[in-house]
Design a protein around this nucleic acid. Sequence first.
DNA 1: AGCACGCCGACT
DNA 2: GTCGGCGTGCTC
Length: 722
Amino acid sequence: MIVEVCINYQDANVDRTFDYLVPGHLEELVEVGKRVYVNFGVSNRVVEGLIINVKEDTNVEREKLKCVLAVIDKIPIVSDEQIKLAFSIKNYYATKLGQALGLIIPPFVSNNEIYIICAQQTSDLTLEDELKEIYNRILKRPVSANSKLAKENEDKIASLFLRGLLRFELKLLKSLNEEKRETPTEPQYKLTKDQKKALELITSTFDKGIYKNILLFGVTGSGKTEVYIQAMRYVISKGKSVILMVPEISLTPQMIQNVKRRIESEVVVYHSKMNSSQRQRAWLKLKSGEAKVVIGPRSAIFAPAKELGLIIVDEEHETSYKSEKSPRVNAVEVAQMRAKINSIPIVLGSATPTVEHYYYAIAGKYAICTLRERINKALPEVFVVDMKKEILDGNKSIFSRLLLSEIEKNLQRGEQVLLFLNRRGYSPIVICRECGYVYMCKNCSISLTYHKDGYLRCHYCNYKQEYTSICPKCGSKYVRQYGSGTQRIEDEIKTYFKDARVLRMDKDTTTRKDAVEEILSKFKSKEADILVGTQMVAKGLHFPDLTLVGVINADTILNMPDFRSKERTFQLITQVAGRAGREKQGRVVIQTFNPDDYSIVAASNHDYESFFEEEIKIRKTMGYPPYSYIVNFIVVSQNEGFAKKGIENVYRLLEKCTKIVNLKIYGPSESPIFKVENQYRYHILVKFEKASQMIDIANMIKERYNYNNAELIIDVNPINTL
DNA sequence: AGCACGCCGACT
DNA sequence: GTCGGCGTGCTC
């Protein structure tokens, strides 16, 4: 018996599998998805590997074959379906199989912890007895022909198992206090016509057992959640499970509450602040099928849901679904792969769908349902203020006259205000007026942001230094802070409205574990009149008395050097605007220097279609997605010269491809932010005509790039090219 | 990642 | 002559 093993998931610079011989005493233990210990390389290091195939024969010469030393897991920690998913990810994102598996294998799996928990789950023996039995079975037999090595390996493995034995006692104590669960209450909700249609489409697609993207296009407050819940109930009633993806768990407490209350099965919530034992419990509940619903952000798409029947991606346009760390996967794309593997529907919900997805929907590639009505109230009234004109009229304030007067009215009425600015800190640039020196991060090519606590901070690497008002370059004392962040908005708004109670929500005020919930509940219970915040406040929040939203500067995203900047602007304005007047009539004031830009005009008219029409024309003439497929090849090194050499290697490889397929190469050039955390970055952007060509060439470059002095990052379908 | 193999410069 | 530099390639 032979097993095909993927060695050391994460970093080993090998992207192939290896065959190992299974000794007789391990034959009944090996299974696809279990981990094994094997000898690897000339020095026979003991390494961990994952079995991805069990077979009778191999092409490898017998004398090369080594034996499996031990089987680590009692049950597979990765299912067949998840292994298929790993291969899809490897192929599409041009990663190594190990990297793809690394996303799927739960991070808490270390040594034999899973073995221990699983033993606890399945055995009739006491835990300790079973562990001892396993220990004896695996270790008290010859593991390899070479007896010297065998002894060393035994010692190594024995020590791993002993560590496990110590842990198991703690686990035993913990498992005695099992959590209890609220029983769901079975209320009937009446659906609107549109909701009914959407639900029917989802359930009938599910019944057919086919892979299909269903775009659920509905404005904020049109009742998407109700469609999700009823669809989930249907799928669960047929014995299947559901993954519900949300962009950020701490901002969707209402939805989670709703789902928990209305779903028959146990609901597991994944979030980044869970500790290792909470994660283990969640993982096991899904794996065993005890829980049929998992809700969570990006990582939830890798959850071990058993017999998956439906995937729902809420706010599918959110960029947080894309990982910024290598491998740069997009959880929405991964969700599509997983839906395809399982032949199930995937629901993409949004009020502002991505241009690509909407394009596929109207082209007939995806199904689409539109929820037109806003269930409670009319949409808010939107005013666009031209800030050029404000300046011409002598208004030097950050706030337009209209915004100030609207805030005033709101405060008088006892209603609440939300002020949105996409930038934290006090001011983003500190500059010497004598010599022009801009305070820069010493690790990144980024200007430092002045914070109110007297420190200058880099928002890329968190480097901080004390602020001195004397220029470090020329010694002048004419140093000035330019621009505004949320801290400054908070300060200045207090000078205009001295009695107003102001709260601020951004990365700086929410580092503590429950900080987000605390700020939101304070605002909800009307302990504050004005909430100032970044991106965080734009999403999903619902406050009955919030009737005015101010967008301080709509241009921050618009001016980014990215072909999606208009789309992002439209989405963000629409989203923040959606926070106003969810029950009473709301108003929105948008401050901008580009009042005529179509993304801003369309957002102010709540008109997705006309935004889309303008945007798709530009995408077509410029050859951007969905009319092309983009890959960003980035080469990174601490040494500038190495990075440059690396990107030149990539360029040479790409040039050869121009003879075979039609592609457009932009670069090589320095990345827009050249240095990040002391790493120099060069990149080449490549546009392909066909997805298949993109995949082939990205994989070819990955295979052939062998310059070890600089790391190559392949970003397929990049969201952020900075 | 490790480790060996291999092909060039400055040394006992 | 040979010790060691690290480029290249392999690991079942």
